[in-house]
Every structure is written in C-alpha cells, then in structure tokens.
Design a binder for these strands. Structure first.
Lengths: 239, 239
DNA sequence: CGCGGACTTGATGTCCCTCAAGCCGCGTGG
DNA sequence: CCACGCGGCTTGAGGGACATCAAGTCCGCG
C-alpha cells in the first residue's frame, strides 16, 4: 500500500522496520476520487494528510478572472498535503487531475509519530522540504526560463520523480493531463504550449500525446532545460 | 537576541518558557557578514542553521549567462536555512543583500530539540512550511501576475512580514536593495522594474527610493496585487 | 452519427526585453 | 575644492516572445 512512499523515502534515507510499521499503523482509510475534483480546498481545516497512491494530483492557487497557477504536480508516493499537518488550513487547493486513489493519515497519529519517532519525524519534515525545493526550481522556470526550457525542465523533473517510484519504462511515462494543465504549471497559455510541444517533437526530443510522454533524447532535453537533478536529492544519504 | 524569532513564532503559536529556553540554549555564535556575500553556497554541507538577526538576505539560484532568480527575501527573525537541518546540502545559495548579523544553530542541537521537544519541533517544521507558502505565492506572481501586480504584491508581502517583527513604522520600512535585485525576485529586468516603480509612484501608491519603502495606499496596492495575507498565517492559533 | 473536449494553426497585438545613452549622487583622490 | 569614476537610476527606440482572438480539425464517446 505505502510501497511507493517507502521507495521515495528510501531513495533518500534509511527507514527502519519499526519506522515502517509506525507509518503503516498511522494510515487509516483508502479513498477513491474521480478526475478533476478539488479534494482539499484552500482555507479549510484538515485533520488528516493525504498520501497519493495512484493517479495525478495538483496543488493550485486561483486568481480573479479564472486564472490559475499550478504550483506542484504530485505523483504516486507523494504526500500531497503533509504540510497540512503543521499548517492545518492550506494556503492553496489540491485537486485530482486523473482518477486517484489516496490513503489518509490522521494528524493525531502523525503527532504521535513526532512524539515517539524523532528520526522518522525528520524524514517526514524532509519530504515537505523537498516540495519547497521543487517550488524553488519552478520559480526559476517561471521567472527566468523561456517557454521551451520550461517545458523541457518539467518533463525532465517528472521523468526523475516517476523513475524513483518505478513508473518510467524506457524513457516513457504516463502523464494523462491536458496541454492546458501543463500551461497552468508553467505560466503559459495552452496555445503556446501547443506550439512549443510541436517544436520539441519536431526536434526529435520528446513526444507528448494521448497522455503519454516519450522522451527521445534526455541529455539534449536536460541541456535545453539546464536541468540538474540535485534539487530532488536522489542520492541516498543520512539526514 | 532571538526576540524577533520569538515574535514571529508567537504570532502563530504559543511558545512555552521551557521551549524558549531550549531555543536559546541551542544557539551558538553570533557572526557579522558584509553586504553582497554568498554565505551559504548551494551544494555545500551545512552543520548549522542560520537565524537572521539584522539585515536582509536572499535565497537564489543561478542559471547560465549570469541570470539569477531570487526565490525568497529574508528579514530579521527568519531562519534563512532551517531546511538545511534536514537537507544538509542546499539546492540554492543564500547571500547577504546588506550587512547582516546572524546567529548560528548547530544541527546537533536542533536534533536534540527534535528528541525532547516535539511541539517545538512542529513549530520549527511549520516555519519551513511557511517558506514554502511564500514560494507558492511567488510562483503565482511569476507565472500569472503582470509586472505592476508583482511589485505591488512583493511590497505588500514585505510590509506584512516586517510588521510582525516590528520593523514597519507608519507604512514605512527600510528595504536597502537595488532595483536590479527587485527584478531578480520578480522575474523582470531592472529597466522594467524602474518603469513600473515610476508608475506606482505617479499613481500615488508607493515610493521606493534610497532604500526605503513608503506605502501611501495599502488597500489600493493590495487590490492591484490581489494580495491576501492568509498565506502568511498571521492569525495566532494552535499548530 | 453527431457532440464536445482537446488539440492545432493563423493573424494580430502587447507586455516586457534589449540595447543604448545620459543622469544623478557619492566617495575618492589629486 | 573640484575632477573623476562608478554604481545605480532613468528614459527612449526598437524588437521579440508570448498572449489573444478566432477558426478549424481530430477523436473518443454516447
């Protein structure tokens, strides 16, 4: 059930058997959500955190006139709102992009972990810091990269993150979201995303269609994006 | 010494006398840095976290060709790299913008806090989550707001954050940084920042010169920026 | 078979960038 | 005391990347 979370954690640190058990015991219900549903609205008090088991979710903030900025994409194994454990009410909303299966972790049980498992607590803390690292890298994209680099970077990031949880197969991974949603991630319009995707396709770098990404030339893509995966902390070491 | 940090924390939660003492005891050296110096280079292992006592600092990431994105500004009372406690090597650098005085918190002492003060640990965790909230709001600015809204938002945010630590005086606060640095925060060029500042000045909304910001019409500024301070969690409540 | 959502493409517009020059204030040194 | 240099600010002219508006086209699905 929490195997992808454990893969994600163990890519970064050792997790003992007792800690693994504590995590399993902290979980409560499994829930299924349909696609395109806001499951955690901004400002609402939360009493549990949500681990994404299957599907894709997104954090987003709305502006007036229907504008929206997606601030992070979530893949299986991600705690989409572990930070709600300390924030309670979130500053942003979280929605499903595809049908999703999630697992709930009641906050009182997480609090119990912080009382009895300091090291596991630090690993959980680390996971929320990792989200902040991703936020910063997106800020670089949004503030300084041009459209083609932004998209290249996004596809490189997802490649790296999905690989950790075993969801990449030979440069291919599922990404069943629309071009408009990609645009909302990278501060562009869907029209421009469409044109840039065409450019990437015609350059033989990557294909993104019918919800699947096929990367043909990862090194070239990483070069265009100035992608360096250090910010994802994929080298295992003690925290 | 750590009074501004305590002001910042107590704007969000109760901090007990024992917790305050634990924090004081966890501090080690005070250090002074000159302006414009990178004090925490990206990728270098850190063994302590840095509390900013006085001055302004910035987190930034470099790109090729001298481009740079500042991902957060830090004001007195901010832990500029509390996240280095769990990340160790940072994904970004931290520099001084002005002469700064800082206070070091060795990581082993922070680890001791996580072993003995679960609630204080959660408050520290909260502080790193607060940085992530600020990152997300900046992502909205960078991705979706136009130049005038971006600057308006930045000045509103700094107003709110400086007020918490008592550094706002009747709509005025010190901000001794250059227009080029403002540009690096908000993904613009210094030329354009200059033009937009002129626009804000001529509209009677705010003045930013010789390192000082004077806000003349905060409500109007907040309206332009679509600034809502909820993401700063300034209402005191239990974590 | 027809509908609707997503994708595609063209024409036009605009916000911000780039390049360039000049100005202003201030510290330094002759 | 003034010349000078320098960093930061200011302003203009021109250009480009991306947005906007507007038609389609494609395709899965009822």
């Amino acid at each position: 059930m929490i195997d992808k979370l454990l893969m994600k954690m163990r890519a970064r640190d050792e997790i003992g058997a007792d800690e693994e058990r504590a995590l399993r015991d902290a979980a409560s219900d499994v829930v299924d959500y349909p696609a395109d549903k806001t499951v955690i609205p901004a400002g609402k008090e939360n009493v549990f955190s949500t681990l994404l088991l299957d599907g894709l979710m997104a954090r987003y903030k709305d502006l007036s006139q229907g504008q929206r900025q997606i601030t992070e994409l979530h893949v299986p194994g991600d705690f989409v709102d572990l930070h709600s454990f300390s924030l309670k009410r979130l500053d942003h909303s979280v929605m499903t992009l595809t049908p999703c299966r999630i697992l709930k972790f009641p906050h009182d049980r997480l609090a119990a972990i912080t009382e009895r498992f300091p090291h596991l607590t630090r690993v959980l803390w680390f996971l929320t810091n990792l989200d902040a690292c991703i936020h910063r890298e997106w800020a670089v994209s949004l503030g300084r990269r041009n459209a083609i680099s932004r998209l290249a970077h996004l596809f490189c990031e997802l490649h790296a993150r999905l690989e950790v949880v075993g969801l990449v197969d030979g440069g291919r991974y599922a990404l069943p979201i629309t071009q408009a949603e990609v645009a909302e991630c990278m501060g562009l319009t869907s029209v421009h995303v469409n044109r840039v995707l065409k450019e990437l396709r015609e350059a033989g770098l990557l294909d993104f269609k019918s919800g699947k990404v096929t990367i043909h030339d990862l090194p070239a893509l990483a070069r265009i994006a100035e992608f360096t995966p250090a910010y994802l902390y994929l080298d295992r070491r003690q925290l």
